[in-house]
Structure formats: C-alpha cells, structure tokens
Design a binder for these strands. Sequence first.
DNA 1: GAAAAACTGTTCAATATTGCTCAATCAAAG
DNA 2: CTTTGATTGAGCAATATTGAACAGTTTTTC
Lengths: 222, 222
Amino acid sequence: MAPPPSAKQKREFEPKTFLATIGEGRKVLAHSRKQTIFTQGDAADAVFYIQEGKVSLTVVSKIGKEATLGILNKGDFFGEGALAGQALRMGSATALTDCELLRIDKKAMMLALHREHTFSDLFVAYLLSRNIRYEEDLVDQLFNSSEKRLARLLLLLAHFGKEGAPEIVIPKISQETLAEMIGTTRSRVSFFMNRFRKLGFLDYGESGLQVHSSLLNVVLHD
Amino acid sequence: MAPPPSAKQKREFEPKTFLATIGEGRKVLAHSRKQTIFTQGDAADAVFYIQEGKVSLTVVSKIGKEATLGILNKGDFFGEGALAGQALRMGSATALTDCELLRIDKKAMMLALHREHTFSDLFVAYLLSRNIRYEEDLVDQLFNSSEKRLARLLLLLAHFGKEGAPEIVIPKISQETLAEMIGTTRSRVSFFMNRFRKLGFLDYGESGLQVHSSLLNVVLHD
DNA sequence: GAAAAACTGTTCAATATTGCTCAATCAAAG
DNA sequence: CTTTGATTGAGCAATATTGAACAGTTTTTC
C-alpha cells in the first residue's frame, strides 16, 4: 500500500530545492497512464522521484500471482533498492496516471546523499516514513482479517483524515487490484464491498467510490 | 521479522567507528534476558543500537492479540520511529538475550546524522536494508500460505545461506512466538512443524531446532 | 526437588477462505 | 452504435483456519 508521507514531511520536499540539490545524472521523464517504468528483473541503476502523478508497485510470484505493494504519490521516491545494492528490480513500477518523474542515477544519488546535508536529511526522513508505513502494513496483515484490511485500505486511498467531508476514492481502481493489495481474492473483495455498501459505509457514486467516515468503525471496532 | 543487514553492510557498522561518531547524548545500557526496553505507548525520545544480543519487537492489538514484528540482532537499530516524529512508541522492545545497547537521544542522533557524513551514510544504508526486509515480509504475507511463511521464517532465523551445513535455529523460540511472527495460531505452527519434521526438513536436536536445507523446497516449490 | 508456569501435540466443531463458474454490466474502441 | 474485453455480483463445493480445549512435557522459580 502507498505510504503517504505526513503532510509536514511532504511540504519539505519542495521539488525546486530538490532539483537544485542533485547535480548531473538526473533526467526528467514523462510517462503516460499504464506505461511501465521498470519491470521486475530489470537492472537497477537508478532511483525515481515522483514530481507529479501516481505510480503503483507490484510484484508477481513464481506461480504468477500478483501483489500490489503500494500506490505512490507526488513526493515519493521509489526504486531505492538500487541504492542498497540490489542489482535487479524486485518488482515492477507502472504509471497509474500520466506522470512526471525524476530519474536519478544511482551514482549521482549516492554522491548527492553524501555531499548535501539537507538532501540527505530529506531522504532519511522519507525512508523513515516509508519504514513506518511498511511496519503498519505488516501489523495490519498480522492482526486483521481481510475485511478490516480492506476497510483500512479504502480509508487510506481516500486520503482519510485530510478533510472532514467524505472523499472520493481514486476514481478507477479495480477490485482485482484491491484484492492484490490486501492479499485476498477478488470475490472476497466484492463480497465485502457490497456488505460495506449495504451498511452505508460506502457509495458507488458515478464520480467514483465514496468512502464515509463510518467505515472507520469497521477498522476501529474491537 | 528481523532484518539482518547484508554481511557487507554489517561489516561497516563497526561499533567503534560508530561510537566515535556520536558525541554526547548517548548511553550504554545493559539489559538482561526478558527485560523490557520500552513499551508500546511510552514517550519516544531516543533511538537504540544493538551492540550485543537480540531484541524482539512486538505490538499488541486492541483486542489483546500480540504480533512480533521482528527479532533484531547485533548491529541493528530500533526505535527509529522517534526520528520521524512519532511521539509514542508504537510497539514494545524486549531483550531476548542479555544484551548491550546504545541509547542515543533523538536530538543527538539528528545532529550526528546531519553533521557526520559517514554516519549518515551508514544509517541510510541501514534504513534501506530495513526497508527491503519489510518489503519482503509484506510480499511474503501477500503471497504465501502460513505454511510457507513458517518455512521462510525458520530459514531466516537459521541464518540460512551463510554456511552450507544445516544450522541451529535460535535455541529458544516458542511456537507461540513463531505464530505471532507469521500471523497465525499456535496450533497451526505445531501442526506444520510436525509435518516438516516428518518430512525430514527439520530436527528437534537437543541443542535446538535444526533446519535442513531441504526446507527450502517448501518455500521454493510453486 | 516440588510446585508453578510455560510449552507442545492433538483433537474438533464452527467459520472463513479459496477457486472456480456463470450471467450481467460497464467501458472503451472501432 | 455495436462489438470486445474487462469488471462485477453471486453461488457453491472443497479446503484451510480459527479458537478453545486437554493431557502430557519441559522449564522456571523458590
């Protein structure tokens, strides 16, 4: 699932500052919806930064099952495995919307991290928030039933907590993808979604999925 | 589950170098087995570094279920959430063996990270490896059945891949804990363990659990 | 070394989940 | 506007998992 860095951290990731920080070795890329950025197994020699748009990270297992690890937004990095010495991409990255990415060569990134304090601080903050997010996801998996996981995911996708009013969930997201993100089957997702709908936690408005705050009860209860 | 940084990274985390890097604000602590280092809900104002011993990180859910997020070893950090602005501990840390920890005040850590290149590089490397580990754990949860997750966990605990010969798994680890780490019930663990044993993937030697490389088949096979 | 506490192997019935299949919609592309 | 492919709601049988119990062991603790 996508780690949305806290509002505070996000504000500090000013693309301008960021761009200034990196010297050469960077390149701005435009990707259109559905385009693949890298594929599991590719050589990993760069890190990416999302200036605009959404990107999804997926992995496919030996038996062909697919899992979605997260949906990343503006201000997120991805592909950092490369920095840790992973020679190959462990998953695939796909543009979920048209987007504008910054591609930073591994070498340039390492240099920048070593040289520029502020940039390094920024990156450490990002890694920490990412860590927290993964930890939460793991806890979610260890504790909760697939029904609760779905509820939590929907709330996260709806950027819950930002505004008071019910928000629109990402306009297009298939039940299949939702299932991949929480580690269950599509039929289960369909089943729960309808249950949520009948209970009034959810609406299938034409503009997309509307998540009501009452869905929180599913996550919080017990 | 515990992220064992790659051998390479671990070598670079020389406690000596490390200690020199941090100025004031650090303290060496001795904890004896079973002692609790911090508890879920405590104020989070420091980061810890394990100089010697093993530490387990756990979380308890609202309904009292317990999950074990990982078992950390010499050279690992924990409690880094504090650096990302978490005011409270999201989980508890307990000494699994007698251990020697370094407690670093949040402020001192931030300063050191900002000032000392090499230390910052080290920490970034650590965070990256930790990230990779969490990602793998998440993938494991999303893809695999509890049986495979158990097999993987046992192999990880046995430090598989380091030596050729079958290794001894951590001498004392209860099925209860194993269950908490993979998100299933103790009876399930007991059931699988015996199955593994009958199939010859495992031995209950007196010195502890012996994991055979053949256990890999469980993880790898389809 | 006795008593208490923790751990294990096994049950078993009640649920939950998977893996299909099929028909009905919906959406995009000609 | 019609065809094609993707998506969804349902249902169902085969498994898998939970949760709780119990007796037998081992380990701690005093």
